[in-house]
């Protein structure tokens, strides 16, 4: 077969597969988007209609005109950003130690870091709640931020350790030869070339903090401290749901994350990578 023709056929096959995949991934979200512009009752119309028969911005105005709900968003941004930055900071230090040093109990520490995530959060809820009260962190930002850091650190450490392991050791040796400390080697050499890894771990961390519900609810109590997932859950009443507002709230919630993703993706897709550095 002609090389050009084969390429074209391959291209068509990939495009078809991409479209099928996009339907799988995107259709439910499209339905959510359409529902957010519907009246509650139209969401349940049969046959279902993708184009809202009575399009309305009611659900969106209900959110924007309610300062309490806007505050949910601000809280979520602030908490998630803080968690991301602090997790990366702490995880980089730990990953550096695990990647570049040999020391007693390293393996034990690894096992602990991996398996602490294995306890069902729901059983931790009550002792954890007591602990946070004891530490005076109940209904505060640090309470939630530190909690989420504990949830995200294991993953961040494991991934960053793996990432550092791929970076050639000669890099930090060079710093040492120049008289620099391991601290300098970490921050001057390793971290700057690890930006793709940091971004990838950071996005994941952000997501966890952004979407967490159970602890956010338990560790806060005033409306000024609540986050978006609680806001969504508050729309699920005892007797009825505000379907369209729930949909619009999650659409609004996902737009900034999507922008963040779009902005940062160049770093870890086709950007500077460990492989490139090595060559």
């Amino acid at each position: 077969m002609d090389r050009k023709l084969r390429r074209l056929l391959g291209k068509i096959a990939v495009l078809i597969a991409l479209v099928v995949g996009a339907l799988f991934a995107g259709l439910p979200v499209l339905w959510m988007l359409s529902s957010s512009f519907k009246l509650n009752t139209d969401i349940f119309a049969y046959p279902p209609q993708l184009i809202p028969p009575n399009p309305t911005l009611e659900a969106y105005t209900a959110i924007f005109t309610d300062p309490v709900k806007v505050r949910f968003f601000l809280n979520s941004y602030f908490i998630s950003l803080s968690v991301t930055v602090l997790t990366l900071l702490v995880a980089v230090l730990a990953a550096y130690a695990l990647s570049r040093f040999e020391f007693p109990f390293k393996r034990v520490l690894n096992v602990v870091i991996i398996s602490v995530q294995a306890v069902p959060p729901i059983t931790l809820l009550i002792p954890y709640f007591g602990l946070i009260m004891f530490l005076g962190l109940y209904n505060t930002y640090p309470g939630l931020i530190l909690t989420y850091m504990v949830f995200t650190l294991p993953y961040a450490i494991i991934m960053m350790t793996g990432y550092f392991n791929t970076l050639p050791r000669e890099l930090d040796e060079a710093v040492k030869v120049d008289g620099g400390s391991s601290w300098t080697a970490l921050w001057r050499v390793l971290v700057p070339i690890s930006v793709p890894g940091l971004v990838s771990v950071g996005i994941y961390t952000f997501m966890i903090a952004w979407n967490e519900y159970l602890f956010a609810l338990t560790l806060t109590k005033t409306p000024e401290m609540r986050t978006v997932p609680i806001g969504i859950q508050l729309l699920m009443g005892q007797h009825s749901y505000e379907w369209n507002q729930m949909m619009s709230m999650s659409i609004l919630g996902c737009i900034p994350i999507l922008l963040l993703f779009l902005f940062f993706q160049r770093y870890f897709i086709g950007g500077m990578t460990a492989g490139a550095v090595k060559n």
């Binding site: 991934a25 995107g26 439910p28 979200v29 959510m32 997501m207 952004w210 979407n211 519900y213 978006v228 997932p229 969504i232 859950q233 699920m236 729930m246 949909m247 999650s250 919630g253 996902c254 994350i257 999507l258």
Partner: peptide
């Protein structure tokens, strides 16, 4: 996209 939403939703 599926990644961007909280479990409840």
């Amino acid at each position: 996209l599926p990644w961007l939403f909280t479990v409840a939703i």
